[in-house]
Amino acid sequence: MAITMVANPSNQAAKPRWADVDDDNDDYLLPPRKVIGPDANGIKKVIEYKLNHENKLVRVSKTYRVRKFVTNARKHVVERRAWRKFGDAVDEDVGVRLTMTSVEDVFLDRHMPYGSKGEEPKKSQSSQNEEGSGVLQVCRNCGRKGDHWTARCPYKDLNQPNESFPDTSDVTSVKDVKKGAYVPPSRRGGEKSKGSDMRRGTEENSVRVTNLSEDTREADLNELCSTFGPVTRTYVSNDQRTGTCRGFGFVNFVNRADAEKAIKVLNGYGYDNLILHVEWAAPRTK
């Protein structure tokens, strides 16, 4: 049931009256729109005519219930709603990616440890994991294992625009392989390392980022790199005493291709007033 708010109820839009229309144009010779009502119950009927694909005349009758009420919409508020978008929001339509309603229900977690009555605080996701008896919960989005399934990925909001990436980068990596040179399996192009290989795959898709600014945190690095593809782990080395970043960090990508792309783009990228240096991380000794 659609509800339409009509600001000017009494105005009937001027419909082309058949007599005024060019005689030559047969297409417009449809019977006029008729509005019946609203009657005492507020029922309004609108009858329109149109031509269907067989060029047959079709009568469309719509029945509405009309209600009138008074809203306390403050004048200025209503006015502002009609403002045009400006700045970076120009050319944006409603419902673009920036704003989305969370799928998860969040509530005020009550905790009452001191004897008075209160609801038991619901246990967090960890308890739900117990029901997944023995099956390792793997999320396709961020590749993080064990925490949640894809549908409940906390990072899913970040991943929408990235579906195109893996495909394009795979193509480039294949080209990079020299003819005849031996390429170890982990470096071969076209291999998607999602799924079961994830554990080993992520160790090798490790990228080192150096020349980070002092107040870079894991979240910043994550944001920066997640645009290239799902990230399983970020680590930023911090000075224990001052809490500031020591200047370097590591990012583990799910896909090697994403890691490559990240290196290509971010190496030399200006971030927080410093030029980043991004390269493959040296393999860890087992």
């Binding site: 509800i3 339409t4 309004k44 009758s61 029945t63 509405y64 219930r65 009420f69």
Partner: peptide, 20 residues
């Protein structure tokens, strides 16, 4: 300033199409 606005709301109940 509250604007006491009279607002008309239409609620679509039914649609029928009929080929003449």
């Amino acid at each position: 300033e509250y604007e006491a606005k009279e607002v008309e709301v239409e609620e679509l109940l039914e649609v029928t199409e009929e080929v003449l």
